[in-house]
């Protein structure tokens, strides 16, 4: 196996040890902890009073718009990374190209700003 794949296999081992550690401690915990469920104990916590309505209440659409903006910017950040490593070779040409790219990116942000999307309320 190549070094490249081995490095990624190490990541799998790291995930496995995290699960193993958590499983071990939860297992020990399961042996020593008490377990006395009562109906009152198992209702959702709402500062002591009985919960009103459903726990899965509706939430606002603004979260969705921020998520959308995030996807746009994050994908564009992906394009900047390879350019950043090779800037020395591209020199002036790369600089102008990325200047245009970042300008368009900023334009998108300014557009969202002017549309009032970035205002939380």
């Amino acid at each position: 196996m190549s070094q490249f794949l081995r490095d990624y296999l190490t990541v799998v081992w790291f995930a496995a040890i995290a699960l193993l550690l958590a499983g071990l401690l939860l297992g020990i915990s399961a042996l020593v902890r008490p377990n006395k469920p009562t109906p009152q104990k198992l209702i959702a916590y709402e500062s002591g009073v009985d919960p009103v309505g459903d726990g899965w209440s509706q939430s606002q659409i603004r979260y969705y718009i921020f998520a959308l903006l995030f996807v746009v910017f994050d994908v564009e950040a992906v394009f900047i990374f390879p350019w950043a490593t090779q800037l020395e070779r591209y020199a002036g040409f790369g600089l102008v190209e990325m200047g245009v790219f970042v300008f368009v990116l900023l334009l998108g942000l300014v557009y969202a700003w002017r549309k009032g999307v970035l205002r939380w309320v």
């Binding site: 040890i17 995290a18 958590a22 902890r33 469920p37 916590y45």
Partner: peptide
């Protein structure tokens, strides 16, 4: 370790149990 593990009646139990593990795995990787 000795604290009772309370899972609310209405909770989506399987997902409820997985969530802390995902956070821990993210730290490890």
């Amino acid at each position: 370790l000795q604290k009772e593990d309370i899972q609310p009646e209405l909770a989506d139990k399987r997902i409820f149990k997985i969530a802390p593990l995902i956070v821990l795995v993210s730290t490890f990787i």
